[in-house]
Structure formats: C-alpha cells, structure tokens
C-alpha cells in the first residue's frame, strides 16, 4: 500500500536529522554551563506569600518573640547529611530573622523527624500547638508521601487537617515543598504532590515556600551540586544551600508580616 511507505520515509528522514543534531549538540553545549554565582538568587513568586501572616505580625507588634513550630522530615530535622543541626535551614532561618528583627526575637521548636508522611507528622501537631502557643507553623512535607505513593486524597486531607488545627489555635501556616535533586524521584512521581501542596495552599490561604522550584533554579545556575566530589565538598554545598533556604524563608516571613 503506497500510503504505508509514505509514513515510513519521512520518519526515517526525521530520525537522521535528529541523530545528526544530537551528534552536533555537545559542540553547541559548550557554553551551556551557567556561571555559578556566590549569592543564591531568589526569583519573584517562589518565596513570597500571597497571604499576610497576621499572627506573626501581632507578635512582632507586641514586641514578643515570634514562636515557630517546624514540622518536617530529615532536611528540616537537620539529620540529612549535615554535620550538625546548626547548619540545617531552620537554624539558619533564626539567624536571618534575627538579623532583620533583632536578637531574641524568634524561637523555633523543631519537631521534624526523618521518614514521616504528612499524616504521621500531623499526629504530634495538636499537642505542640497547645503547648507552645506558636505564631507560625512551618510545615515541610510531601517528600515521604511521594516516595511511598500515599493516596493523594489522604495527603490532601492531612494537609487540610493540619491547617485547621493551626487556624484553631491562632497560628499562621507556611508550607514548604520537597527538595529538588533526589535521584529517587526518577522512580517516584513527585509532581502530583507538588501540585496538591500548591492548590491547597491557595485554597486555604496558607503560605507556600516553593523549595523544589527554587532548588531546581539553583541547580541550573550551578549553585546546588548533586554530585560533590568528596564529603567535604558535600558538607560545604549542603551548608550553602541550607543557608540560602533559611535566608529566603526569612525574607518571605518578614515581608508577609509587615
């Protein structure tokens, strides 16, 4: 049938063109690597809240320390490949906030645990909210849910329950999404969990710190190294990235509570 030969020939030609392009690509790619800058840049929209943090603002106006409860997994707990918890981004956040608001103006209660899903993180939340009279809930979540393939609706319910609990105790909510760069996400689909976090943050008036997108941009800019040569380089890079995250979060919280 002549129609069939017509299908094959253009495809074959296209393949030849594609093949030649790919052979030529390394030459063109010579200047693909973006120059690494020392400063971590934070584009608009990834670390800014659409909603004001009213309770944080009230605490600042009353000149009392802002109490933040940090809920999350290994990167928040500071156990993820860091030499000490002081390098982890919650500790960096305190320092960057104190630079803006003065010493002693912030307290972070870190309740993060490695390997927990949103539903598991939620279990400790009500008691912590009652105990610490927090102004802000900093909730990093979604990583373990994506890796375990947790039912999206359950993930969403856990998020909404957490936001409800925070609202009931006069606490603002700032959600933090997963890290970019995990090899594991080749085998686990993180996209739907990112989308749910974004949609629920919008629907419920919670802040969302788009860590995934931000770290991806830093990776493309050569700031985030996913394959450091040795352990020392690894530590240096991890410390740098966590410092950038802490600074971006501090900027976001400060702006949303002015």
């Amino acid at each position: 049938m002549p129609a069939r030969t017509d299908t094959v020939r253009p495809c074959f030609r296209l393949l030849v063109v594609l093949g030649l392009t790919l052979i030529a690509a390394p030459v063109l790619a010579a200047d693909d690597a973006a120059p690494a800058t020392e400063r971590c840049e934070i584009p608009d929209g990834l670390a800014s809240s659409r909603y004001a943090f009213e309770h944080v603002r009230a605490a600042r106006q009353a000149k009392r320390p802002v109490v933040i409860i940090a809920l999350g997994t290994a990167s928040t707990a500071g156990t993820a490949g860091l030499s000490s918890r002081t390098i982890a981004y919650p500790a960096r956040l305190i320092e960057w906030l104190e630079r803006r608001w003065g010493p002693g103006s912030v307290q972070v209660v870190n309740l993060a645990h490695s390997g927990e899903t949103a539903a598991q993180q939620l279990e400790r939340l009500p008691q912590a909210l009652a105990q610490y009279h927090a102004d802000l809930l900093l909730w990093q979540t979604g990583t373990v849910d994506a890796l375990q393939g947790v039912d999206l609706d359950r993930f969403g319910d856990a998020l909404e329950d957490g936001i409800d609990a925070a609202e009931a105790t006069a606490t603002d909510v700032l959600l933090v999404d997963p890290q970019y760069g995990s090899q594991a996400f080749a085998l686990a689909d993180v996209d739907p969990y990112l989308a749910y976090l974004r949609q629920i943050a919008l629907a419920r008036g919670a802040g969302l710190f788009r860590r995934y997108e931000l770290m991806h941009l830093w990776f493309e800019a050569g700031l985030l190294q996913l394959r450091p040569e040795d352990e020392e380089a690894q530590q240096r890079n991890a410390a740098f990235i966590h410092d950038c995250l802490g600074r971006a979060l501090a900027g976001m919280i400060d702006e949303a509570s002015q």
Binding site: A80, S114, G181, A184, P228
Partner: peptide
C-alpha cells in the same frame, strides 16, 4: 551518595 537526600 548525597546524604542531603536522606529520605530516598
């Protein structure tokens, strides 16, 4: 080999 991603 990058322990930054411990949850893997």
């Amino acid at each position: 080999h990058n322990p930054m991603f411990a949850e893997e």
